[in-house]
Amino acid sequence: MKASVDETGKKMGMWLFLYTEIILFGGLFVLYAVYFSRFTADFIQGGKQLSLFFGAFNTVILLLSSFTVAASITAVQKGQKKAAVMNLLVSILCGVVFLINKYVEWGEKIHHGIYPNSDTLTGMSSGQNIFFGLYYVITGLHGLHIIIGLILLLVALFAVSSGRVTASRFMLLENSGLYWHLVDLIWIFIFPLFYLVI
């Protein structure tokens, strides 16, 4: 039935899926755009309460993980299996560190009583309530995508180390990588919109 495996088609399917992810986050960015224009001052106030250190650090490690995923594909193409595995391991490690950071960050905010429907938050101005509401929804959804991305990277890792992914057939790795890059891409926009609003 399958005369030849159409790798390009598989990649295309993955891209189409990524488009749906872009639009999924897009819906939230519509909300962000509207509320930012309405509550600019409150958003700036809210942004100052987020930790720039955590945001910047997470940006750097996500960029690093993206780089290592891309490098692992180059390694596979060159037939350097060991380098590919190492690069993927770094990416997965970075993803885990990202999640731990997020956990600490959220935990600290929740400790200060800032979480949806909390007395502290509803006591603040409407704009700040919306800012933190969006913060939790958007970074939460993003975190969920990090988890899915990690699972995909793990699958790819096993496929590389078991030799199912080779220089001539690496679409599984490529597609997992594409997903991971997209998660990174979305974070590139989340970072300035929340941590750097002024």
Partner: peptide, 24 residues
Amino acid sequence: LLATPVVSITLVLVILERFFSVGL
């Protein structure tokens, strides 16, 4: 492909509002 995700996220937001009262 391009329109359905918008409703997906909107419906997710309704569920989130019902459980967490985010207030969006």
